[in-house]
Nucleic acid binder design. Structure first.
Lengths: 285, 285
DNA sequence: CTTGACCCTCACGTTGTGTGAGGCTGGAGG
DNA sequence: CCTCCAGCCTCACACAACGTGAGGGTCAAG
């Protein structure tokens, strides 16, 4: 608070000071100008500070008084600012009488067009993400059938969202889905089908829980499943139990080979135990 | 540069430091992450500073090492940032597991839509301004004929732009034109016609240069003309000379009353003299 | 042992105001 | 006369999301 003194200055503006009593005749003050032009007082102060629009007059007390000429200039500033020009460019246009106004305007127009473009792409991206969060997939029902096979039921997604919609995992899944096209889904579907086949073959071949082959399959499952969302071993154990308990999942796996659901759960449990996890106390995340 | 010491710190990150030689196994450093995700190193530093995305590991030398989990988080940040979310909101979505992601996305979408709207209005405004600068009027030829009468020639505008296009006055005129619709032009045309009539009547009535009536007419002319651009008395004198000298303007005024062009010039000169201006040395601006 | 590519931590600059803090001015009312 | 209150003044900090050095370590290679 050093400069606590009154705002008397030698002659900061190049113009003459007004008479002590003259107020209405010399021009409006900041507040009046601000309401008249629809800008804040702070903006007027700022424009004065940076020399963009200084009032020609000051009262003896230091009040800014804007003349008709000042208002003309301010009006142009407001217009250009609404157009989206930066204050520097406005200053250039206002002060440089040789400035190429239409050129500057055209340049600004292309910039605005670019920004509109970017925003529209962004809006499209947002729509895709919202869709992904709400529908779970960005594919038409036909595409879904073509990719996931005939036994695929589109309602499953809605049910999954009902159940898991506000879990971290659904969010992760949805966000990844937003940036996946049909080919990528196809690749995931292929990998899943390959895993199913490998599971059936291994069970046929008499692979036993805890064996290296079984553990490798469990790891493969983790990898494939990770395309939906990151899956810890504990979560995988929970999944395995669900595969066995849930009628839908059990039917799927037992449809590949009788007893596959249970066998799958057992190889997951064994692998988890090998990694120091007790399957009976494993929790989701 | 007080803290010029080496970046050894007790344990700033909650994680363990890596072995002195391990680099490739623990995770990528800032530079590698920056190229992989397409963000600048500075942005990574910034996100670390504000606690949005801190690397789980540091080498003994203080190098940031990003784990797979860190990269997951970073990826989500990048996606959300591309969507246009602010870092605060990104943090909210990432850290608050109860966050309403679709809601946030939808809110963002409406915001983006609003911004697009504003930009499109702005673009339209720019177009109007560019047009005004280049064509001088935003009216169709038919509108021009309807407003300015049958003897109006649209080519005059192009000629005027040719002559005066890079003067301050043309710019002022053009910018005002950008925000004028047909009704406003009609009002201006009416005022001009009224002025012409008043001039003819006054000359008929024997008003002499220097008389109060004459000076009042000169003031009226300044006022009416000011709808195009601010007109000083000096400039008005130059205009008066041109009205007399230019065949087109002279024909217009002499068409109202024989000798009106010269009489008009004389009442302007007299008025100027009364205001302390020597008409013979008056200059444009 | 030096070079050169990376990495580190300050710390200030950017843009166009928003938001006080602390204080003066000027007209109205008691 | 004094007080009140709206309006004005000048600092000066804050913002969002980094950019851009300054000044200096680190690391693998020649």
């Amino acid at each position: 608070m050093k400069p606590s003194g009154s705002p008397h200055r030698a002659s900061p503006t190049p113009t003459v000071k007004s008479m002590p009593d003259a107020t209405a005749t010399d021009g409006p003050t900041v507040g009046q100008v601000s309401t008249r032009l629809g800008v804040t007082v702070r903006a007027l102060h700022h424009w004065d500070d940076i020399g963009l629009a200084r009032p020609s007059l000051r009262t003896a007390a230091g009040y800014r008084l804007y003349t008709a000429g000042d208002l003309e200039r301010l009006h142009r500033i407001v217009v250009y600012r609404e157009i989206g020009l930066g204050l520097d460019r406005i200053r250039a246009i206002l002060d440089d009488s040789t400035a190429d106004v239409p050129g500057a305007l055209r340049a600004q127009r292309t910039q605005v067009a670019e920004r509109i473009d970017r925003l529209q792409q962004l809006s499209a991206g947002l729509d895709r993400m919202i869709d992904a969060h709400e529908r779970g997939l960005l594919l038409t029902v036909e595409q879904q059938a073509a990719i996931f096979g005939p036994q695929w039921n589109p309602d499953w997604l809605a049910q999954a969202r009902q159940h898991y919609g506000d879990t971290t995992q659904w969010r992760q899944y949805a966000e990844r889905s937003a940036s996946r096209g049909p080919e990528e889904w196809q690749a995931i579907a292929d990998a899943t089908a390959g895993l199913d086949r490998a599971l059936g073959d291994a069970m046929d071949a008499g692979v036993t829980p805890g064996s290296p082959e079984a553990n490798q399959l469990v790891e493969l499952h983790r990898e494939v499943f990770a395309s939906y969302f990151p899956l810890t071993r504990q979560m995988q154990v929970c999944l395995g139990r669900m595969f066995e308990a849930d009628p839908g999942f059990a039917a799927h796996y037992d449809g590949i080979r009788a007893g596959l659901a249970t066998w799958f759960r057992r190889i997951i449990d064994s692998s988890a135990r090998a990694h120091g996890i007790d399957p009976d106390t494993a929790t989701w995340e």
